[in-house]
Amino acid sequence: MTLDNRSTVRKVLIITLLLNLFVMALKAVVGSSTGSLSLLADALHSVTDSANNILGLITSRFSSPAPDRDHPYGHQKFEAVGALGIAAFLGIACFEILQGAVERILKGSDPVKISPPELWLLLLVLGINIFIAFYERREGQRVGSPILIADATHTMSDVWVTIAVLLGLIGVWQGIQWLDIVLSFPVALLVFWSGWSVLKENLPWLVDEMAIAPEAIHAIVMQVPGVINCHDIASRGVVGRQVFIEMHLIVDANDVEAAHRITEEVESQLEAKFRPVRIMIHVEPPAYRSDLISYESESKRG
């Protein structure tokens, strides 16, 4: 069983793209008029927000969970690849922010000037960013979309960035010019942390890390009548998104039909617990014996 959430993902990404373009324009205009390094860096961060939405639309177009001849396991890893693209954009933004801050320290710059109306515009920007982050995360969790959850994480970092920038500009408004440069560094660190979080969440999917402990699968399978034992259990994917399970199953059956009924019940139990899931079972006769639940570790083989 596979779930196709791409229409919802595209709708959410289009809405957030339009909002992010509006936010980016506001930050760029206010940043240019005030000369604020931290705000211009924040505008650069918003450029990556819009780029991420476009990247998400592209990857969602190709990330169908349905298998075909060339992709028998579906195409959902395209979404994880898109999430890694978001991490790359965040890394670039981090570098640009740090570079701008160091250059301003070394070369100096004109003083930053900010007015109350410009501060109110930034409060509006903050409110829009908070809405985008919670909207994307809620929809991403509802439909199980890694690209929406990753983008929501990115946008949440934008919320903290904008808060830091606002604090700095309020300080500048009160005459503390150095706050604008100083706060550029934590902004960069927040951007970097967001990128690392996205990378850490999506690498297991791409490298086929174990999705479910074999002991948990074994416990469920052993409750099915007719099962003697199961071994060489392997799983990959992400629970709630798409999981693939394979195993060797020893059954108490002397004909194909009886073995088939037992495996159908095993699949039904696993489907109820871990759906959506695709299961591959290799059936073995009652006389076969193996106490090995999962594959041996590297340390045991050595």
Rank of each mutant, 00 (worst) to 15 (best):
T34L: 10
F22Y: 04
A164W: 14
V191A: 09
L183E: 11
K11Y: 04
A164T: 12
N129V: 11
E136C: 13
I250D: 03
V239F: 10
G74E: 00
L292V: 05
G195C: 02
H260A: 11
V251P: 04
V239N: 08
F134N: 15
S297R: 06
G127A: 15
R301P: 03
I228H: 03
S7W: 00
E267H: 09
L189Q: 02
G226F: 13
I14K: 12
V256R: 13
V277S: 10
V143P: 08
E267S: 08
V12Y: 06
G74Y: 05
R261S: 07
M247E: 06
I15L: 11
I250L: 05
M280T: 07
P286Q: 04
S194I: 05
S46I: 01
D42C: 02
E265I: 06
R142Y: 12
F244T: 08
I181Y: 10
T162R: 09
E271A: 08
G195I: 12
V29N: 07
G144N: 13
I163N: 13
D255E: 09
I170M: 12
D110I: 04
V30R: 12
V266K: 03
A43W: 05
V12H: 05
F192K: 14
R289A: 05
I293R: 10
F89Q: 00
K200F: 09
D232R: 13
S235N: 12
S64M: 01
Y295P: 01
S235A: 12
L179A: 11
